[in-house]
Design a protein around this nucleic acid. Structure first.
Length: 467
RNA sequence: UCCUCGGUAGCUCAAUGGCAGAGCAAUCGGCUGUUAACCGAUUGGUUGCUGGUUCGACUCCGGCCCGAGGAGCCA
């Protein structure tokens, strides 16, 4: 293993002395090097031999994939034997001539002229190019990354994060990191992970909201983006115990302004994914089984195009109740939506739906009452289209300290724990509001991914702490 | 926490209460254009654990363990 750098250098020198200088390239850029001799450093994810003189090597380097065609006449005999016997997921340095070929999916393949095995794989590589159970794959998450689908999902997650941050950056927001370890259990301890903090109880944060509220009073428009922890015993394909949440908070915010921000943010990300990263959606769904329960890539893309091009629906809670009754999924006033209600609503419109103005009694204590009727609060949930459920929950916050105190008492919360939170309202308070966006649910919706567990590198669920 | 379903070869799954099976992977052999290659052969088993019913249990019954899906709760 430790001799690799030397061997790598040796091979490069040998080759460059013999023929046109080879260049380390990324497979992604292969089209620029037609006819040239290049070096690819990567992994052999599959191999097919045809007779004793020809071997097809499926190569991956993290940027893309390409087929290497190794023929005994084109390369040193010893290196051909090594290539023709290489095991799944071995790493190798492959030198070859880039050739245009209509038979190749990318239009290019590599005529191999040199092959050096770097890290030999084992013959018991567990993940095959076929369907496996989710549990088996999650136990091998560290290897599962290497498959095309998982690489595409991780890329999609990365692009989504980048577009979100870019959107807020261009919209004049400042990123404020909120603490992950918190000292007080603001809304009860049942859904918090407790820590021993030098002998004192502490908790892993389940929201950064209380921390971005003061920050927006300093910087106007802010957001935090980081891991969030929920000890809820939720065990569905939409829940993780550790997930990433983006929480913008805006001073002087209004209900309409809050909805508009959410809508623009989602549309911006969707638009950029469609423009730049549609091939990731194709890759995610390339080897889909018939009973995967997932949309096809075409269905995902057309759903996203609708979200990009059409206005999102805005319904008040009361309007939504009427719609649900009409659609045959009635709900009693004062009850929260269940999954069937969310599905019914977005099926009806085919675009994300905002449900606003919820009954105060089923929402959080800090939400600002509706100016016309204080049995309601100014808030919204955004239900994603396609049955992916709630991706955003937002509200205007109570900015009046007396009202906030009243609510804290009504909810039987400890005033002392909220001292600094109340303090914001003492010094130049203004109406403000924001929302929380669940990153993994957004990625699920953008990619058409059935299980939320695939949308985070190392998922944490009630049952899963490893790897 | 509740409801439903499941646990058989490395993987994905079969098997009226009556010989433990297939495909893939692996190994060996064949093939000069394969695209999750193909063809032939070989290897591979404490049927989750435990107790019971039975001449006989992968199969039926009880208990336990593990997992999945859903509900509730939420992003």
């Amino acid at each position: 293993m430790f001799c690799c750098p030397l061997k790598m250098r040796g091979l490069g020198e040998l080759r460059s002395g013999m023929e046109s200088p080879t260049k380390d390239i990324l497979i992604r850029d292969i089209a620029k090097y037609g006819g040239e001799t290049v070096t690819i450093k990567g992994w052999v994810y599959n191999r097919r031999n045809s007779g004793k003189k020809l071997a097809f090597l499926q190569l991956r380097d993290g940027s893309g994939t390409i087929q290497g065609v190794a023929h005994v006449n084109e390369m040193p005999e010893e290196e051909f034997q090594s290539a023709a016997a290489v095991t799944t997921e071995s790493s190798a340095i492959v030198i070859g001539v880039v050739k245009e070929d209509k038979r190749a999916p990318s239009g290019f393949e590599l005529t191999v002229t040199g092959f050096e095995l770097v890290g030999e794989g084992s013959n018991d590589y567990p993940i095959q190019p076929k369907e496996h159970g989710v549990d088996f794959l999650l136990d091998r998450r560290h290897l599962w990354f290497r498959t095309e689908r998982q690489r595409a999902i991780l890329r999609l997650r990365d692009r989504t994060i980048f577009y979100l941050r870019d959107f807020f950056n261009k919209d004049g927001f400042t990123c404020i990191d909120s603490p992950i370890i918190t000292g007080s259990a603001c809304e009860g301890t049942s859904t918090l992970f407790e820590l021993d903090y030098f002998g004192r109880p502490a908790y892993l944060s389940q929201s950064g909201q209380l921390y971005v509220e003061p920050a927006c009073m300093a910087l106007g428009s802010v957001y935090c983006f980081g891991p969030t922890f929920r000890a809820e015993k939720s065990f569905t394909r939409r829940h993780l115990t550790e997930f990433w949440m983006l929480e913008p908070e805006v001073a002087w915010q209004t209900q309409d302004g809050n909805i508009d921000l959410q809508s623009r943010m989602i549309k911006s990300v969707v638009g950029r994914i469609l423009e730049n990263d549609a091939e990731l959606i194709e890759q995610i769904h390339a080897r889909q089984g018939e009973d995967s329960g997932e949309e096809t890539a075409e269905e995902v893309i057309s759903r996203l195009e609708k979200a990009r091009d059409e206005k999102f629906i805005r319904l008040t809670y009361d309007e939504a109740l009427k719609e649900l009754e009409r659609l045959g999924e009635p709900l009693t006033w004062g009850d929260d939506f269940g999954a069937p209600h969310e599905t019914k609503l977005t099926e009806e419109y085919g675009v994300p739906v905002f449900v606003e103005r919820w009954p105060a009694k089923i929402k959080a204590f800090y939400m600002q009452p509706d100016p016309d009727d204080d049995t309601y609060v100014q808030c919204d949930d955004l239900i994603a289209s396609g049955g992916y459920g709630e991706v955003i929950g937002g509200s205007i916050r109570i900015h009046d300290s007396e009202l906030l105190l009243k609510r804290i008492d009504e909810h039987k919360l400890d005033r002392r724990a909220f001292q600094w939170y109340l303090d914001i309202r003492e010094y130049g308070t203004v109406p403000h509001g924001g929302f929380g966006l669940g990153l993994e649910r957004l990625v699920q919706w953008l990619g058409g991914v059935h299980h939320i567990r695939e949308t985070i590198p190392f998922p944490r669920t009630i049952k899963r702490l490893e790897p």
